[in-house]
Simulated assay, not measured.
Amino acid sequence: MNPIAEQALARAREFYSPGAGPNKAPTRKFWTTGDEQRLAELYGDTPMPELIKLFSRPDYAIYGKAASMGLKRSDAYLASEHACRLRRENNPGEASRFKKGQQPWNKGISFDCGGRSVETRFAPGTMPHNNVPVGTERVTDDGIRQRKVRDDGPAHRRWKSVHALIWEEANGEIPPGHIVVFRDRNTAHLVLENLELVSRAENMRRNTFHRYPPELKDTIRQLNKLKRAISEASDEKQDD
């Protein structure tokens, strides 16, 4: 093993050992009775930045604890410069709102976009130049043959997989949560005998990491960790 790989392996073992790195569970800081009493005394009039320093906790944790204890800011604090504007002012933005009965300046004025907009718009019923007739077939980048089944509606609903059409012609509509797959995984083998209806959950199990036995899963995880560690060590070596 070359020096870079040895260094990466050592770092990986240290980093991914129990109680270290991403495997280490975050430490939860519980509120003590003393913390609660102190928060009850200070929350009414103390700005949040000071509370964060005093309790060494993020603002959302302090807000959450105060809410669970039923604590409120005092009227004096809400009227001070420390409170946000929405709390400090009774009706912020009132001056810039429309008043009841007020008319907008452009009422009754017809919109005119100008230019050649009108003459270049699609007329009702006009189809774009790249439109193809219903029944046209195409092959996606994944090798799935599709057929155009309609001209209206969203673009993604105008095309349907040919293998799904073959299955539906023989068996009826595909049930929700299910898909039609190729038994031999050959997307060009478009015959009914090669098609199978499976649930999306089953398809995921067949085509993802979850189909492997536990021993192989653990080996793959460790290998991926080692690859990442080697990559990081190589990057650091190049930066030196």
Rank of each mutant, 00 (worst) to 15 (best):
A229M: 12
R88A: 03
C84P: 01
Q102K: 11
A25M: 11
Q37Y: 06
E168W: 13
L223G: 08
P176N: 05
D45T: 13
C113E: 10
E36F: 00
H129T: 12
S68E: 15
L197M: 11
V139S: 03
D142K: 15
L9C: 06
N171Q: 10
S17Q: 13
R185F: 06
R185S: 09
G143E: 07
D141L: 08
V118M: 14
D59K: 14
Y43P: 01
Y43K: 05
P124K: 07
G44P: 05
D235F: 11
F182L: 03
I109A: 08
P104G: 06
E215G: 00
E36A: 07
G21E: 09
W167H: 08
H178I: 04
D151M: 15
F30C: 08
E119C: 07
F209M: 07
L216F: 12
S199C: 06
I230K: 04
V132I: 10
H82M: 05
H156S: 10
W105V: 13
W105A: 15
A8N: 00
P22S: 00
P133N: 00
R88Y: 08
E202N: 05
R206D: 04
G34W: 05
G153L: 01
P22Y: 00
N207V: 04
I62S: 02
E6G: 02
G101E: 09
T27H: 04
K237I: 02
E50P: 03
E202F: 02
